[in-house]
């Protein structure tokens, strides 16, 4: 009880200071010059109509490579942490319902197609490699839920993921070779608002989508295998 009161007191203090900082930031005003620069130059410099995608993949491409690496490290670390708990795995008691099984049969292909659509159109619509990959992984999650015995082949997951990661670096190196900057946009900008435009943005987002999809699937599979040992 005293601990709870103490925590509430702490929350009031933290809330007061947070609120006093937040209130001093004007809402809905133009704030950054760099944002204006990106908006004005995104079509001319990158050919992509989605300014957020252009920033993530081209202006801050190196940062995104680091982000992909962080995700990879998290998946690997999770597998390493859970490696010892995997042996004590037991059978299930309850089978998933008929609705779940039949629904998954229809929804799984739709999830794969929708995920691919999201990462293929990352430079035109909201979305991109990360959400697309997560949608694909959610398709596999449905399979895991509906069919207890289904198991994605871990070797293939690793091969696909590593190939996608290497392709990302390779695209960057081709940019370095052709234009002198790592991840330089060595393909043409194309007509804005078309599917084949914006140079390397669709390529990189396809690679990221495949990588995130296989990584998340592996991650979910690792979590599932260990949570079964009740």
């Amino acid at each position: 009880m005293i601990r709870k009161l103490f925590v509430l007191f702490l929350l009031v203090i933290v809330g007061f200071f947070l609120a006093s900082v937040v209130v001093s930031v004007p809402f809905g005003a133009e704030k950054t010059i760099v944002g204006r620069y990106y908006l004005n130059n995104t079509i001319g410099e990158t050919g992509g109509v989605n300014a957020v995608t252009s920033i993530v993949v081209l202006y801050r491409g190196f940062d995104t490579l680091g982000e992909v690496t962080v995700l990879f490290l998290a998946a690997t670390g999770l597998a390493a942490i859970l490696a010892n708990t995997r042996e004590r795995r037991k059978k299930h008691k309850e089978k998933p319902s008929l609705i779940m099984r039949v629904g998954t049969d229809y929804l799984f292909p739709a999830a794969i197609v929708f995920g691919s659509y999201i990462f293929l159109h990352g430079h035109l619509t909201p979305g991109g490699g990360f959400p697309g990959g997560v949608v694909i992984a959610s398709g596999f999650l449905m399979l895991f839920l509906a069919q207890w015995h289904y198991k994605a082949d871990e070797l293939w997951l690793k091969v696909v993921e590593s190939l996608a990661g290497m392709t990302y670096v390779l695209i960057g190196l081709i940019g370095l070779w052709k234009l002198g900057t790592f991840l330089g946009n060595f393909l043409g900008k194309g007509t804005p608002n078309m599917l084949l435009s914006a140079g390397i943005i669709p390529l990189i987002y396809i690679v990221i989508g495949i990588k995130v999809g296989s990584e998340m699937t592996g991650l979910l599979q690792n979590l599932r295998e260990t949570t079964e040992n009740e």
Binding site: E30, K31, T32, V34, G35, R36, Y38, L39, A51, V52, I55, V56, R60, D63, T64, E67, V70, L71, L73, A74, A75, G128, F130, V134
Partner: peptide
């Protein structure tokens, strides 16, 4: 402004990890 949106995209992925 697109810059905070790009930053939050990164932050969400790191959050999942």
């Amino acid at each position: 402004d697109p810059v905070p949106q790009a930053l939050v995209l990164t932050a969400i992925v790191i959050g999942v990890a």
